[in-house]
Computed example of a mutant assay.
Amino acid sequence: MKLYYYRSIAPNFGDDLNNVLMPKVFPRFFDEDDLTLFLAIGSVLFDHHPHQALKVVFGSGFGQYTAAPRLDDRWKFYCVRGPLTAQALGLDERLVAADAAVLVNRHMRDEVPKRFKFSYIPHWQSLLNGDWPKACELANVELIDPRWPVDRVLEMIQASNTVITEAMHGAIVADALRVPWVPVLPFHRSHRFKWSDWAGALMIDLRPYATFPATLHDLWVSKTGRDGNWMSSKNRLVQLAVGAANNALPYIAARGLRRLSEMEPVLSSDVALAKAVSKLEDAADRIRRDFHR
């Protein structure tokens, strides 16, 4: 079967984690046979998959990025990310486990010395537009770039005492590795539904903090919900205004990061995490039996 995951225009830790973690959970399991698709980490439950392919679902979620998929006998659900996914797809709530990335707790947890008091993980889209390296430097917060290789991001998360994160899989992995985290409300509203979905599976009372973006583009998107394509205008006055704002905003974003570092961090209960890991491992056992190779 083929391991399917979302590939964006830039590398992304949450999606790329599939290629590193899933072969550890399912050794010698995957090939390029796209007649059977394996859907694990990510909001990949949508109708874009080939109808004739069997879709094997292991901890995936619905993200509201598209319409909900029309389910038939070519979908085989072992577990899903959270209760909102189950509700949206009309599935039995007993299928709710957690995001499959939670299994880093069993397969990729290392003893890493703490080097950073606070680290910040922006969403990869925020890094395309905003000067977060400068904002983090000004705030004395270590930047973790989700476009870095998976192993590097994992090591950096474990080397942090507290992770501040706009990236959902920054929170998921930090929580699974027992690193306290502070949730940042995503600047793009389209990314917010999936946070609540995953948090619901772990009984987390999710209350993300709004903060200030490091670029005019993300400020516009967060306030209006619309794209900021007008900022690419070649009009000189527009470019001068955008440039002046982008020069100033990292200083404001840095103040926001310092404020976030003072907030009480979050960590799911040991009981909730253990239950999620157990449900994921039970589902993995069933998949290995059903698709024994």
Rank of each mutant, 00 (worst) to 15 (best):
V173R: 05
V80M: 07
Y209F: 12
A276E: 04
L37A: 09
Y209H: 12
Y120W: 10
S269N: 01
I204N: 04
G170R: 06
R106H: 10
F62M: 01
W220K: 00
G200M: 11
E111I: 00
A174Q: 03
K134T: 15
V266F: 06
V102C: 03
A100H: 03
V80G: 07
R70L: 13
I144Q: 11
Y78H: 15
K76W: 06
P113C: 02
T162R: 02
N105Y: 04
V20F: 05
P122A: 01
F29V: 12
L91V: 10
L202C: 08
R74H: 14
Q52N: 05
A167S: 15
D33E: 03
Y4H: 08
E281A: 01
A253N: 09
W124M: 09
L202R: 06
G59V: 07
F187D: 13
A135E: 00
V238P: 00
L71D: 05
K55T: 01
A86D: 07
D47E: 10
H49A: 06
F212I: 14
L249M: 09
R236T: 03
R189V: 10
A244R: 12
S196Y: 13
Q64N: 11
A201D: 02
Q158G: 07
F62E: 03
V104A: 01
L138Y: 10
W181I: 08
W148D: 13
P180L: 04
A135S: 00
A135V: 01
Y78F: 15
H191S: 09
R178W: 05
G61W: 13
W198E: 00
V80E: 03
L177V: 04
W124T: 05
F291C: 07
S268K: 02
F212A: 14
K279F: 01
M263H: 13
S268M: 02
P208S: 08
S268I: 06
Y4A: 15
A101M: 07
F58A: 11
T162P: 05
R255T: 07
F46W: 00
I172V: 15
V44E: 04
P133Q: 12
L17W: 10
P183A: 04
N129F: 15
R289T: 11
W220V: 03
L128K: 15
F212N: 12
G61Y: 09
A53I: 09
V153P: 00
P122Q: 00
L257F: 11
D31E: 09
T224P: 11
P113W: 04
I164S: 01
R192H: 12
S261W: 14
E142W: 04
D92N: 15
W75K: 11
A101K: 04
V102I: 15
S233R: 06
V102S: 01
K2D: 13
D16K: 01
E262W: 00
N19A: 12
V238F: 09
A245I: 03
D175T: 14
F291A: 07
V96Q: 08
M1K: 11
Q87F: 08
S269L: 14
